Amino acid sequence: MKTFTPKPADLTHDWYIVDATDVVLGRLASQVATLLRGKNKPTYAPHADLGDYVIVINADKIALTGNKMGKELYSHSGRPGGLRRDSYAELLENNPERIIKAAVKGMLPKNRLAKVQLDRLRVFRGAEHPHTPQQPKTFEIAQISQQAK
């Protein structure tokens, strides 16, 4: 039996929509990273770009567990003095999209393919998004935060 290797003609990129309301950040990021990499498909290969497009809505209603509200998210521009640090509490109010993108980026492999996969992630603060013509399928995350119950 020969090993199956996906060809460019075999690639299909579906669209999924994920509601982040009351979902713990780590659980959301791991599920989204799985969809972006294409690990949910039977034709998965680590070197091939089989991932899907993922739309995350209600990013401002995400659940942060533990002491994350007191911690900070760091990023560096690569230029001298380019260290940027923002607290999670401040980011949840002003830019919740950055929290989710940083968590998903950390769960993707550290290679050239990760940038292509991360570009397929669309994060929106509210329930509205401009990608309705793509007819995304809903992807349900079963486990929600214990504090939300």
Rank of each mutant, 00 (worst) to 15 (best):
T138Q: 01
V32T: 07
S77Y: 10
D49M: 06
M69L: 14
F4A: 11
D86N: 02
T21M: 01
Q143S: 09
Y74M: 12
R37L: 07
G106W: 15
R125K: 15
S30R: 05
Q146P: 13
E128F: 15
A29W: 12
Y44C: 04
P136F: 03
N95W: 01
E140H: 12
P42A: 00
P133H: 03
N67Q: 11
N40L: 10
P8R: 10
Y44H: 04
N94F: 10
A9V: 11
T5G: 06
T43K: 14
H129Y: 11
V23M: 08
A148T: 11
A59L: 03
D19T: 07
L83H: 09
R84M: 15
T43Q: 14
I100M: 02
V18T: 06
A59S: 04
L83S: 14
N111Q: 00
I57R: 03
Y16T: 00
A9C: 11
G81I: 09
A102C: 03
P136N: 09
P42E: 00
I17W: 02
P109L: 03
P133D: 04
K41P: 06
H131D: 07
V23T: 09
E93T: 12
T65A: 04
R125S: 12
T43F: 14
I99K: 09
N67D: 14
S87I: 11
A114S: 15
R37T: 10
Y16F: 01
V104C: 06
V56C: 05
E140F: 13
I144P: 01
K137H: 00
L83C: 12
L35V: 09
A33F: 04
I62Y: 06
P136Q: 08
L83P: 14
N58M: 01
K105D: 13
R37C: 05
I144F: 00
S30F: 01
L28Q: 06
Q117N: 09
L118I: 10
V56I: 08
K101W: 03
N94P: 06
V54C: 12
L25S: 08
P136A: 05
G51Y: 05
K115M: 08
D14Q: 14
K137G: 00
P130N: 04
G26R: 10
H129V: 08
T5M: 08
A142V: 03
A63H: 13
F139V: 02
T3R: 00
N40P: 07
A114F: 15
I17R: 03
T43I: 14
Y53C: 07
I100F: 02
D22H: 15
T5A: 12
G126Y: 13
L113E: 13
L36R: 07
H131Q: 08
L108H: 03
I144N: 03
K39S: 01
E97Q: 12
P109G: 09
R122A: 13
E93S: 09
I99W: 04
S145R: 05
E128D: 15
H47I: 05
R37P: 01
L36M: 06
P8A: 11
T132S: 11
T5P: 02
R27N: 02
I100V: 02
T12Y: 08
R79N: 07
E140K: 12
G70V: 15
P8S: 06
M107I: 15
T65R: 04
G70C: 13
N67E: 13
K149S: 05
L108V: 06
I55T: 06
L91C: 14
T3A: 00
I141A: 02
